[in-house]
Write a protein that binds this DNA or RNA. Structure first.
Lengths: 353, 353
DNA sequence: CTGTTAGCGCTTTCAC
DNA sequence: GTGAAAGCGCTAACAG
């Protein structure tokens, strides 16, 4: 039955599909379904109320034509795009390469898309902000230090913003981060069992926020045990950097017996310099610690005592926070700190006795 | 001079800026500059021809108001967005975490932005395609196997597409990839110097395209030397997977003296199983090779002979190709293969004599 | 619940 | 080279 009208339907579908490169619009669907454009809009919008019959008609027509709403047009009027901007530096990407993908996953989990802005020098040009606004992004995750004027621009344009493992240079902004201080405190509590005498700290580049947080945490914790850091050396967060530091530092007469590194990569390089370049034994001659818990750190070849930075937690928390701000259900601006997990391994001495 | 009109100008700027949350439009700029909207459009468009005077007036007004064109509105009419979609799987991201960021860098280098689509199972739901089209993306880089119908959809909608280290499941598409076969041939040429007797190959998951390419290349090269692969074992591309394989494979009575691994991660795991789990020596008891050249592979602790996959070259070539297709200057569809670089290190035996 | 109408901010003919 | 007017495809406000 309906064979006459069915044939007719097919004809109309084909007629509308004639120009294959052209995209099907809500207008086409409306015409085929015999309803208004608004009806089509309502069936595809989130909270649109349509009768079941209309919805069925629209869905059938849309199906036949392969229709999907044009996000750009929608975005122009709603001023929302389902786009979340992620600002990331080469630094972050090199040290935490998984972050970008994980953010993408988390962003997509609730129907949004990730628009990536790679920025240099941890600073953000005004041009980037124009693009952010120009694409109508719904929110921003910044793994870069935001200049005060950009913070203010976000506020003025009401673009929700969450900082990822960063603190704003000025003003206040919502942020997620790792509780470096508490983590370092746990680590130091463990280290004192190995009776450290000379302690060195291998930091990241000068001004690197995360490194300085970790250094401050270590210092504070050591003081509580009546200990101090004898020396702070800056390197570039890399394995090679750590190894170069080690070759110098551990070759000295009065070399440290305990080296805390601001991240795992440098710690691994330093370990290798001790063993392969200088013939020292870890942890007997020098104990070494890192921060991050890279996969390599758990390998038997290195077995590095470190603190696991809760990257997945940070990522999930960042996106959740951002979504609350977008939805308007957030309580307000806040900084959320996630705990680092101490991983005691073979690169540090166990308490004697 | 002009103090009267200057004061007036300031007033008009302030008036237009009154509602701070509202975005400045080309209409506002036109009004302030005393020109038409079209003039504003032409000064900000790429090939717009405007007189220097008009341009100056517009630029001054735009500057004063902090105007930047609304990309969404522009995109709606031009059907271009300066957006390049990157399709990536968890697999790819895990094995080549730097790719995503590098693609972002390369895409931005010429004024575009990267829109990321994380997809599961190396396959691409129709929903993703709708989004691609809905955002008016100018082109697609897919590090995922594309189903034939999606290839066809891209073609029909004239969305340029470049596959990244993949071959299409059906049909033809522009692609960049690593020349695994030639790389493996170089590697095998080196290996025969160490007089291999029993050769095993540790592959990635069944169906993993890259792994199968590498296996085929190894096989072919070995045959030329009158050798064969005695056994192929599948693992999951991971360090732990490689280590588990090693524990089993290398504990056998008739264990291989040469193990080629489809990637470095597995090779490193296998090496560690040999040395730490079984007390074997590398390369004396068993020589091991990888593919990719991870940073860890060059560390003295492992010193793995491997092939460097030219990730940066692939990334740059992919974006360049895509941009040629977008600009319409591409010659046509083609597959471009980049050479892998042999890195001979300590995990393989040197030719005797 | 449904259709009509009026834009979102821009680019693009088309006259001048 | 410039301005007026039309419209990209959609949603929102308003009557019915």
């Amino acid at each position: 039955m309906h064979s006459q009208s069915e044939a007719d339907w097919e004809d109309r579908v084909d007629a509308l599909l004639g120009d294959s490169a052209r995209r099907v619009t809500s207008y086409d669907v409306a015409k085929l379904a015999g309803v208004s454009q608004s009806a089509v809009s309502r069936t595809f919008r989130d909270g649109g109320s349509v009768s079941p019959e209309t919805r069925a008609k629209v869905e059938r027509a849309a199906q036949a034509l392969g229709y999907a709403p044009n996000i750009v047009a929608r975005s122009l009027i709603t001023r929302r795009s389902n786009l979340i901007a992620v600002l990331v530096t080469a630094q972050t990407s090199r040290n935490y390469p998984e972050v970008l993908f994980q953010l993408g996953q988390e962003i997509q989990a609730r129907g949004n898309r990730m628009l990536v802005f790679t920025v240099d020098f941890d600073a953000l040009a005004a041009e980037v902000f124009n693009d952010l606004a120009g694409y109508h992004v719904d929110g921003i995750v910044a793994a870069t230090s935001m200049e005060p004027d950009l913070l203010e621009a976000c506020e003025r344009h009401r673009i929700p913003l969450v900082l990822y493992n960063r603190v704003p240079r000025g003003g206040f902004a919502s942020a997620v981060g790792c509780d470096h201080a508490t983590g370092m405190s746990d680590l130091v509590d463990h280290l004192v069992g190995g009776t450290p005498r000379r302690v060195a700290f291998v930091a990241g580049p000068k001004g690197a926020v995360v490194s300085e947080d970790r250094l401050a945490g270590a210092r504070q914790a050591l003081v509580r045990h009546g200990l101090a850091i004898d020396e702070v050396i800056h390197a570039d967060y890399s394995y090679d950097g750590g190894r170069a530091v080690g070759r110098d530092l551990l070759a000295r007469k009065k070399r440290p017996d305990t080296v805390l590194c601001a991240n795992d990569a440098m710690a691994l390089g330093l370990m290798d310099s001790a063993r392969f370049d200088l013939g020292l034994s870890v942890p007997a001659d020098v104990q070494v610690t890192g921060f991050d818990d890279l996969p390599e750190s758990a390998w038997p070849s290195h077995d590095l005592t470190t603190l696991r930075q809760p990257v997945e937690m940070l990522t999930r928390a960042a996106i959740r926070m951002l979504e609350e701000h977008i939805a308007g259900t957030a309580i307000g601006s806040e900084r959320r700190l996630m705990p680092a997990e101490l991983k005691i391994r073979g690169s540090t001495r166990r308490p004697a006795g």
